[in-house]
Computed example of a mutant assay.
Amino acid sequence: MKTGFLSALLASTVLIAGPALAQQKTLYVAGYGGSYEQVMRKDVIPAFEAKAGVKIEYVAGNSTDTLAKLQAQKGNQQLDVIILDDGPAYQAVSLGFCGTLAPGEIYKDVAPVMLFKSNKAVGLGMVGTGIMYSKKIFDENKWPAPTSWADLKDPKYKKKLVVPPINNTYGLHTLIAMAQLAGGGESNIEPGFKTFKDEVNANVLAYEPSPAKMTELFQNGQAAIAIWGSGRAKAFADTGYPAEFVYPKEGGYALGIAGCPVAGSKLESEANAFLQYMLSPAVQVVMATGNGAGPANTKVTLPPEAQKGIPYGDQVKQLKAVDWDIANAKREEWTKRWNREIER
């Protein structure tokens, strides 16, 4: 999807009008790095800048980095829009960092599961957490494709497994999955820590949060299997690397991509217009085909070739949801314990 097409579409969407276009302003948008940032910079941001008469400064970082920036800038926010995982988004709302969404017709088309009761954030899309593996390495070793979260404990993957740390949602999903395998869950995380210490840790090559470093570990042949998101895996496979992605038979995890206008932003109107633009069908298709994000807009139809590995239609039924009320309340405690006991 080219920016020219998006520019044409924007002509019919509700954006900033009249005086707001008189002089260019700078809108600060914080969101993910890696392949997500690339798609945003190349195929999403330019059309909005051209139509809205604003310059967008994109601030890349993972969700916990963005939340930390909001906390550090409390009372003098320098960000206008944030895009982050659903768990940290709920934290941002509860901490008062998100302003109320301006009314917009587009929200009538958003899937109910993507709407926040607070009306201070909205889901922009969804990816699924599952298992990515190198088909080349698996074929060379005659290994069968992974099918279960329990496969992470298999000794044949010693120093071949990559898992993001738990300050990253993919890592947190993995800890919860290990707890659930052993009869626990969000309200009883102990089995998860025990499984990691006793059965998974020996297989871990790195606890890696960086998308660039994750792909590098696969490209240089060090890593063979990892926990990652469907969108990240799709973007990696699109580069030509033989990356395959599967949801474990016990179920992958839904990871919502959420956005909110930052409370106190001097560009409240522009921030809300940008979020509504992100939900427009054309942009939703761009994010699905370019970054593997399942659409939040129910009016979006993806062609069959664009649906592989993306949470869309029946694939959404394979995903489980985290109880964020419990997880967010315990996350700081779990992270300190993780750093002390697991990722030393």
Rank of each mutant, 00 (worst) to 15 (best):
Q315A: 15
E268Y: 15
V110K: 03
Q73E: 10
K108Q: 14
D198H: 06
A306V: 10
L205N: 04
L6K: 06
C98D: 02
R340H: 09
E244Q: 10
V162L: 09
H173A: 12
G34I: 09
I16V: 13
K320C: 01
K320I: 06
K213R: 13
Y312D: 04
E268D: 15
V246N: 02
N168V: 13
F97L: 10
V127D: 15
T215L: 15
G87F: 08
G252H: 04
L70C: 11
Y247F: 13
K234T: 04
Y247H: 09
Q73G: 07
F97E: 06
T298R: 12
A243Q: 01
D85R: 02
G252S: 08
A179V: 11
Q315E: 14
Y157I: 02
T298G: 12
H173R: 00
A329V: 03
L70T: 07
G34E: 01
A226F: 05
K308C: 03
L124D: 02
T147N: 09
K135C: 09
G264Y: 07
K153T: 14
Y28M: 05
A233N: 00
V283D: 11
V44P: 09
A223P: 05
D85F: 00
P144A: 15
G240N: 07
A321P: 02
M287L: 15
A17D: 13
Q78A: 13
T169Q: 13
S12N: 10
Y241L: 11
L205V: 05
I131M: 03
A254K: 13
Y90C: 00
P155G: 11
P155D: 14
Y36H: 13
K249N: 14
I106K: 02
K153G: 03
Y133H: 05
A121I: 08
V316G: 01
E186D: 10
S94T: 11
I342A: 06
F138A: 08
A237G: 06
E199P: 01
I166M: 15
A212L: 11
T147P: 03
F274E: 04
L84P: 00
G123M: 11
E105V: 05
P146H: 03
A89M: 15
G229W: 09
